[in-house]
Amino acid sequence: MTEGIDTASTAPTAKAAVVTGASTGIGEATVRALRNEGWTVFAVARRAERLEALAVQTGAIALPADVTDDADVARLLEAVSQAGGIDTLINIAGGARGADKVAESKTEDWDWMYGVNVLGTMKLTRAFLPMLRACGGGTVLNLTSTAGLSAYEGGGGYNAAKFAQHALTGALRLEEAEHNLRVIEVAPGMVQTEEFSLNRLGDQGAADKVYAGVEKPLTAGDVADVVRYAVTAPHHVNLDQIIIRPVAQASNFKVIRKS
């Protein structure tokens, strides 16, 4: 269990969000984007020291927690409730491990990917749904991936996890429309961030090759700006699914690389 949740910083304003995966990459960039819009943001991730640095820089409220841990999720819900609650939940925590074909797949990699991408999203959403329903105009945004829309060789575990998260998002939209809850899916393609490919492949050289020759892959800020737009649009506007790729990536199977 992660220790150190502290909600003494500030009280929520009319627009308040929990953002998971906030210690790096798209999650961190989303915290910055929403804070620039004046939102109260509860920044959630496992790495407390990175969250504290982000809180100092942006004024976000750092809430260290593991989204796959039931006790952490309960403590997170209690902390946010005591601080005044939210109207928006942004599930960004996730990631990939390994690029093995199914025949060589590692059970521990698949367990981890399913746990953080699917069960983590489910656990946070399940915990905060009563609060989001009660506010009368709540939003859930799930960051999935184009890997959840089209399978590719060596992607079986990540494809499976992201396809499941995509399906979860679609089911949630159908179930919660009657509660005036909008459910948004943002599915990025190739995004060059500090850690994603490094964590997946375990080697900086291999991670660099993913983006080699690609002119202007997406940045974390590019995706965060789309997330910001989607959740700040008038509430009756539901951007059900947003696919975002760099121009150089026409599909999961066609990437233009310059020598």
Rank of each mutant, 00 (worst) to 15 (best):
L119V: 15
R35K: 11
R35V: 01
A220D: 03
D203H: 01
W112V: 06
E28S: 03
I256F: 00
S150Q: 14
L77Q: 07
D6Y: 02
A220G: 12
A206P: 03
R50D: 07
Q165T: 13
I242K: 00
V31R: 08
E49M: 05
R257H: 00
G27E: 07
S9T: 15
A33R: 05
F196R: 04
V116I: 06
A134P: 06
R35I: 06
E49L: 08
Q57K: 15
I61S: 15
M113G: 14
N117E: 10
V191K: 11
E37I: 00
W112D: 12
Q241S: 13
K106I: 15
D222K: 00
D208C: 03
R200N: 01
V227T: 03
M190E: 09
R245M: 00
I244F: 05
G189L: 05
A206M: 12
I244C: 02
L124F: 14
P12T: 15
L174G: 13
R245K: 07
F128H: 11
A233G: 09
V223D: 14
A55C: 07
G189C: 02
R126N: 13
A206F: 02
D69H: 03
G136N: 07
A8S: 13
I90R: 14
R200V: 12
F196E: 04
A43P: 14
A207T: 02
V18H: 02
A161S: 15
M190Q: 13
A96G: 10
L172S: 11
P188M: 00
L34K: 04
S145P: 13
S251V: 01
A29G: 01
G85W: 12
G120Y: 02
L129W: 09
I256E: 07
D69M: 02
M113S: 12
R133P: 02
A96P: 03
V140W: 14
V73E: 06
G155Q: 07
R245W: 01
A79C: 12
E104R: 09
A60I: 04
G138K: 14
D6K: 01
I86S: 11
T107Y: 01
I5G: 01
G95D: 12
T121H: 12
S145C: 10
Y158I: 13
P12F: 09
V18F: 07
I26P: 07
A164E: 10
G25V: 14
V41C: 06
K162L: 12
R257Q: 06
V140E: 08
G120C: 02
E175T: 02
D72I: 13
D72C: 08
K216E: 10
G202W: 05
I90A: 06
A250M: 15
